[in-house]
Design a protein around this nucleic acid. Structure first.
Lengths: 200, 200, 200, 200
DNA sequence: CATGAATGAGCATTCATTCAT
DNA sequence: GATGAATGAATGCTCATTCAT
């Protein structure tokens, strides 16, 4: 009989998210997470095998959700590649807007756990990347996006730009409102900085 | 009279760079740095007051050098804003090409020490950012760059894109050769992804 | 539910007392205290925040107990000031007789922690001193003790004499039995060394 | 040829006295002593084999000097035992008045090095104690001092009282002027606290 | 299942002393 | 003799994880 309390599992995840966002993964103390979740220290280990598992689940859920939403977007025939690209950006912005803690974790911790290859995190992340890539590819095939731009580079380009902007936003949210960032980001990735571009 | 050996100081810095790049700052052990540098543990502390000072000096030198080079570039009248922008990107790429360890430290550790506000790191970094901004501004004023793009956002945009691409490069250098990255980056920030951009 | 074991807390205190008495506070090693107490190194820190706290509690208890006993003695109307003075000396001798370790800690370490002003040590110590002073004062008021002797000096005088005698006793207990010391101390503080005193 | 500079030797001793008085022996750093003495760290070891030797020499000189002065006092036939006792107290007070650093070292550090039995410290100290004892003994034999008081206890009694009063004086010199202390000390050791002593 | 007390490996830093110059 | 750079042993404390209750 499985009597583990799913509410408690979620409470621990939420507490873990807040504490890790605030203190960073290495500084985040299990005892503090337990206290915030309202459970005993030892109880954490009934729900998660170790501290790492907590953040991995957080990140897995993040990319799993984004991949899921993008999966619905990709095959739509009622949208142009440009609209899909904009929409992809919106998906990502939306998930972090209003969840600063999650943003901080993505910004600061995501990379190291991706590298470690723990759990299914890499799979979910690659799912998302592949789907995003297919959006670009469709644009290239339909001669809307420039075929000279390497898709792989472009993909990393956007993610990196986004990550850093998000990081700056968590530092000074007023100076860098997400709406402005979102709008500028969309514009730049499509048009670049040149006022009179000369495409060949 | 025996004096502090500047070669030893450099050896420690180099060893610190390698170990920190490999293990990350928090996991980097002084004993390992000392061994790699060929000095005794305690000798580290004759040259640097603590572990943090080592990485801070590494980062200060990085930005100090970049700011120095950019400072020479900015006032040049024989180059167009576009050329200056390309050149700025080159400066940054050049310093990391052939120094994977430095790239890793920039990618993984720079942010936290910038936030801590230790030493003159922030000053050097801001110097660089301000100079880069003036390149953009000149382009806008001379109606080469699009005035509708927020300069602050654009700046973070490039840095973030660059940082992430660099990170990916350290992971799989063959799949993402820096030359290709550099070329694509320059292109995208100038022209965006659209094949037939519609500027207003 | 497992709770902090008060027996363990006492065992640590006792072990701390023995090790600190033997090696001195600065040389006393936490690992040695833990081993003597039969607990793990880290367990020490569940009961006491740091090494200093251990000795401070030891000293607080010492003076707290002495002040408590003296507090009962001071208001008694069935005893003369002389009897109270003798009794005060007895209180102090009694607490150290049979506890060489405590004596050593008082003799060697008390002063520095008093100066540091950690915890409530100073309060308890001052309580004791004030009560002792009131014994003297009563004697002076009732014209049994000499008003020409400065009470403050006299107080330090006794404590110092006692501390040093205690120190000697810990060095060669046989050559300086506490009973003999106690008796002589009582005599000298009352009568001095002169055979035929000439009081004015 | 002995070319070691005796002025330098004295400068080190003086610097050692000041630093040890200020920081305590264990916290006193050789580098700080060297700096204060105006010599290089390594030079200290040309004059003293190790840190301990410095304080031992300081204490040896102290007791050697006191014993020397007392040695002249003891055989004098023009003074009564009471005068000699007073004079002995004066000798000791005089050496510390105006040398707070030496007082602090005597108060805080003397005991531990006496115990260690390093150098001739113990000999000089015992010389002094024996001479002081002979003063008392003379008083007892001439029926001026009370034979019932154990000389050994009395000796420790005075030293302890003195040490503690000196310690208090270094803490709050204004509240406890040495003149007042000296006068009270002399009075108490002779007459005790009783207004109407009843000697048997 | 829940609890929280117990565990113990792990590490940056200090500083008396040495010794190459 | 003088210097001061180099050495490296030594230790209090943290905290993720375990496990007795």
């Amino acid at each position: 009989m499985r009597t583990l309390d799913e509410n408690k599992r979620k409470a621990i995840l939420k507490a873990g998210m807040d504490v890790i966002a605030e203190d960073g993964f290495h500084q985040a103390k299990i005892a503090k997470i337990a206290e915030l979740a309202g459970v005993a220290t030892g109880s954490i280990y009934r729900y998660y095998p170790n501290k790492e598992a907590i953040i991995v689940v957080i990140l897995e859920q993040l990319w799993s959700q984004l991949a899921g939403e993008l999966r619905l977007l990709v095959p739509r025939t009622d949208m142009s590649p440009v609209e899909k690209l904009d929409m992809t950006v919106d998906l990502v912005f939306d998930i972090f807007t209003g969840n600063t803690a999650l943003a901080l974790i993505f910004v600061n911790e995501h990379h190291q756990f991706l590298m470690k290859g723990v759990g299914t995190l890499k799979d979910h992340y690659n799912d998302f990347l592949d789907l995003a890539e297919s959006v670009i590819r469709e644009g290239v095939e339909r001669r809307v996006f420039n075929a000279n731009v390497d898709i792989k580079v472009f993909r990393h380009f956007i993610i990196g730009a986004f990550r850093h902007l998000l990081q700056q936003w968590t530092i000074e949210p007023e100076a860098l409102p997400l709406n402005k960032v979102r709008q500028n980001l969309k514009f730049i990735i499509k048009n670049g900085i040149l006022l009179h571009p000369v495409k060949k």
